[in-house]
Amino acid sequence: MSFFPCPDPVLGDKTSVDSIETLIIPRTSDIDGLEVRRALPTARRRLVGPFIFFDRMGPAVLRDGRALDVRPHPHIGLSTVTYLFDGHIRHRDSLGTEMVIRPGDVNLMTAGRGIVHSERSPEEERNAPMPLSGVQTWLALPDGKEEIAPHFYHTNAPALPRFDTADFSGCLIIGDMFGLSSPVIRHVETLYADIRVKPNGRFPLPVTAEERAIYTLSGNVRISGDVFPPDRLLAFRTGDEILIEAGPEGAHFMLFGGAALGSRRYVWWNFVSSSKERIEQAKEEWRMGRFDIVPGDEEEFIPLPE
């Protein structure tokens, strides 16, 4: 949701945990009653595997006529992944897709050479308070796939693999873990999971992903004796065995990462590319109205930022 004008995140204080490469404290913006925390990208940490963008939305309750109304806007060179804990969002895009995403579902929209979409609170729910809580991430497309044809995939919550042990439970959103495999499409090796550690439980961080990070959502986590509160992004060194412990209240976090892309990516507004020239081309195409329209949402759009 790059349309949110969040300031850049900041790095946290140096931690004594040697396995933590980067500690990021997200910057927070209030957008019409919806609090949004942006943790990626930063000046010192642009990517974790293919993840180049991480926004925590809410939790919030939209009241008094407020609603999520993200007008049509373009993307290139990435996949957006929307995952909700509470509330509903209606997605429309220039492929003709119309889909309401619900808690536990996954919307994966691959922009490739170009797509336009809007994200709004469903019209039929606007006459009552509307809860909204979730995470939206971007996955940068790898070399050779940045200009593929755009497509949209929706996966219902029951289709996602789940696990439950004495210490933790969770849902595998993308990738492979604990012998499970998610049906969600991936264009590069990716790991993405919703993890809940039970009170006083422990979670062993998988070492299979080349790059790994967590974003803490609720409850404190302890790593090698150091305690980290909610709303922190912790990126770990490759290959280190990490044990994440929860206190008596338990803990909830997102686990994400995957294979490093191996080449630089540039980000400007909603555009991601390995080429600055390609981003300039996309800017001109949006300015001149050359992107496709969104059926059912043709009247409005977000202008190119000055």
Rank of each mutant, 00 (worst) to 15 (best):
L84I: 00
P122V: 01
F3V: 15
W269M: 04
F178R: 11
L233V: 09
F236W: 10
P129M: 05
L108A: 15
L11Y: 08
D164Y: 03
G258E: 12
G112A: 08
P50I: 03
D8V: 00
A140K: 06
G114D: 04
R44N: 12
G250M: 14
V116D: 07
A193F: 01
G104I: 02
A193S: 10
Q136L: 06
I24S: 07
E280W: 00
L191C: 05
A140E: 09
A209E: 12
I195N: 10
A60M: 09
T155M: 00
H187M: 13
G65E: 05
I244M: 14
V10Q: 11
P230D: 06
S275H: 08
S182C: 01
L217M: 15
A209F: 03
G112T: 04
N200F: 11
L78M: 13
Q136C: 09
A149W: 02
P248I: 11
I31N: 10
G289W: 04
D292K: 12
L40V: 06
M130H: 15
R45W: 00
R120H: 09
G250H: 14
L234P: 11
P230E: 12
V81F: 08
R264G: 07
I52H: 10
V184G: 08
I24E: 05
D164E: 13
V61E: 12
G258H: 12
A43T: 14
E285P: 02
F152R: 11
L180H: 03
L243I: 11
P158I: 00
L11T: 04
L172A: 06
R202Q: 15
E125Y: 10
V207A: 15
E277W: 10
M177I: 00
A159S: 14
F85W: 15
P103C: 05
V267M: 14
H88K: 10
R232N: 13
L304T: 15
G96F: 12
L23R: 14
I76F: 09
R196H: 12
T208L: 10
E210K: 06
N270E: 08
T216A: 03
V188H: 15
P72V: 03
T208K: 13
D86M: 08
F228Q: 03
E98A: 04
R237F: 04
E98G: 03
R102G: 05
A246L: 07
L23T: 08
G134H: 04
R278L: 05
Q281C: 00
V221R: 06
T238L: 00
F3D: 07
E285H: 12
D32N: 15
A140I: 12
L160W: 01
V106N: 06
S218G: 14
P248F: 01
A111H: 04
N270H: 06
V106G: 02
D143G: 13
G96E: 09
P7G: 04
D226H: 14
L261R: 13
L132W: 02
G104F: 02
R232M: 10
I115W: 11
V100C: 06
G247K: 09
T80Q: 05
I20F: 01
A235T: 13
I148V: 15
A259I: 11
H75N: 07
G65N: 01
I20Y: 11
L139I: 12
R63V: 13
P303Q: 09
A260W: 01
S181I: 14
H88W: 08
Y192F: 15
S169K: 15
E124S: 00
H88G: 02
F51H: 04
F256R: 07
